[in-house]
Design a binder for these strands. Structure first.
Lengths: 168, 168
DNA sequence: CTTGGAATGTCAACAAGGCTGACGTATTGT
DNA sequence: ACAATACGTCAGCCTTGTTGACATTCCAAG
């Protein structure tokens, strides 16, 4: 995508008013609630929470990723991550294999059961996303992604794009 | 599975693939991080966190709102909210006025200093949003909002629209 | 006028999930 | 041989959420 629509001539900048920006901020707040609602519901009772979901998601996404990688991706300390991983491994959802090239590293993989839970979680989340996409239509979806990408920190955008390059 | 929207003409449904949906999910995750980063930074050191920001935002947005209202808006228990409000009142940022019609109610207002902090917080957040909007352009912004609204729970959408009706 | 229920405040106890600091252990690379 | 890396773990702390219980104040309906 090249040129932004040149704001010249009669083109108004009304979409940049404080009012419009505030609406966007509130929309993010309320939408994020919906975004996390389904997985939260599924995990509650299983003694797990959002942190476990995030770990499962990215391990599924990048099988064999290391602990350090995951730390950077999630933006948490190794102690926080370790607590989550310990629970996932104890529950038989994740496997940590010693690295072959560098045996200090642990390569993380979902077990069969971990993959099953991942599927359940992402099905729920995807279903909501699909409904929203369908309602809004392809043009809106393109805009949605553009704005979100522009909103990220540089570091996050780098990570996002690295992931996208892998399987999308 | 219900009906897909009639794939009329040459319109493809490629924007509904699992791949595209996953990208949207990851974009939400990374973008939300950026979304909250600036206010978090400002509040850190001031002995306050995201919860305080949210309360300040909605009190600013709906001056005179009651505790019950705020509870529903934020989706937390009165105990959680009360702890936050107590801190805000102790810090001289928020004032709780006894209701005139119904004296059980507390009507919440920002003090001068509360308004100053609110300004600082929302300036930072708005600035990021403005940059993102400007980068993406008006058409993308419209799509962004459409998708977010479609992603909300019914209850959240109701609240979002009630707010929008008030000042926007 | 009494009384039930609503709106609020508060205490206690607890959990999830962040954080820092410190220390230990393999393992790798110089 | 030694420093640095990757990881695990213990201990302690913070924020922000939860439930349960109880007190107060006050409106509204019987």
């Amino acid at each position: 995508m090249a040129e932004a629509p040149a704001p010249q001539g009669g083109s108004s900048l009304l979409f940049l008013t404080d009012e419009q920006l505030r609406k966007g901020i509130e929309a993010m707040f309320f939408a994020y609630r919906g975004f996390t609602a389904d997985p939260d519901r599924i995990l509650e009772g299983r003694e797990m929470g959002r942190a476990h979901h995030r770990a499962i998601h990215f391990i599924h996404r990048s099988p064999g990723t290391t602990v350090s990688n995951l730390m950077a991706l999630l933006g948490v300390t190794k102690q926080s991550l370790n607590r989550v991983l310990r629970a996932l491994i104890a529950a038989g959802l994740v496997e940590a294999r010693v690295g072959r090239r560098d045996r200090r590293e642990r390569h993380l993989h979902l077990t069969e059961e971990g993959a099953r839970l991942e599927r359940e979680l992402s099905d729920a989340q995807r279903e909501r996303m699909r409904a929203a996409y369908r309602t809004a239509g392809p043009v809106a979806v393109a805009g949605f992604r553009q704005v979100l990408e522009a909103m990220m920190d540089d570091e996050s955008r780098r990570q996002y794009e690295a992931l996208a390059g892998r399987g999308g």
